[in-house]
């Protein structure tokens, strides 16, 4: 088992399902939800290290979810995942504190690599803050 927990947030259920199965097959402890609202509820209840957020979602979109996550869990790292990436939204994501901004489609091993880096950053951050 990898030693981190991942939350995946995407309103496209097929995509969510596929990515969950692939991560779990690689021994990653991953949970999926299909909206920003559910994501926020989820992180209030359970512990996660890294979140993968779809940018475009109905209701609370990826950026708003990012903001809420950072407010509640400042050490959690967030990777933005999008099928409609633009430079403008990439800059916005980074400015709002995302760790990475990744274009769909993405190879699962590539994504996992990024999750590992994000988790490493979280660990460094916590160590630096004396936690």
């Amino acid at each position: 088992m990898e030693n981190f927990r991942v939350l995946i947030v995407d309103d496209e259920l097929d995509f969510l399902e596929t990515i969950l199965i692939r991560l779990q097959r690689r021994n990653v402890d991953a949970v999926g939800v299909s909206s920003g609202k559910m994501a926020i509820e989820m992180i209030e209840r359970e512990h996660f290290d890294v979140a993968i957020l779809d940018v475009r979602m109905p209701g609370i979109d990826g950026f708003e979810t990012l903001r809420e996550i950072k407010k509640r869990r400042p050490f959690m790292e967030v990777i933005m995942l999008t099928g409609h990436g633009s430079v403008e939204s990439g800059i916005q994501g980074m400015q709002m504190g995302a760790f990475d901004y990744v274009l769909k489609p993405v190879k699962i091993d590539d994504l996992l690599d990024r999750v590992r880096k994000a988790f490493e950053r979280k660990a460094i951050h916590e160590k630096k803050s004396g936690r």
Binding site: V87, E88, G90, I91, M94, Q95, G97, A98, F99, D100, Y101, K117, R121
Partner: peptide, 17 residues
């Protein structure tokens, strides 16, 4: 710092464009 460097590169590429 990864995200900080990403931000810089994106801004420069955006300006160039």
């Amino acid at each position: 710092d990864h995200p900080l460097l990403r931000q810089v590169i994106l801004n420069l590429l955006n300006n160039a464009t």
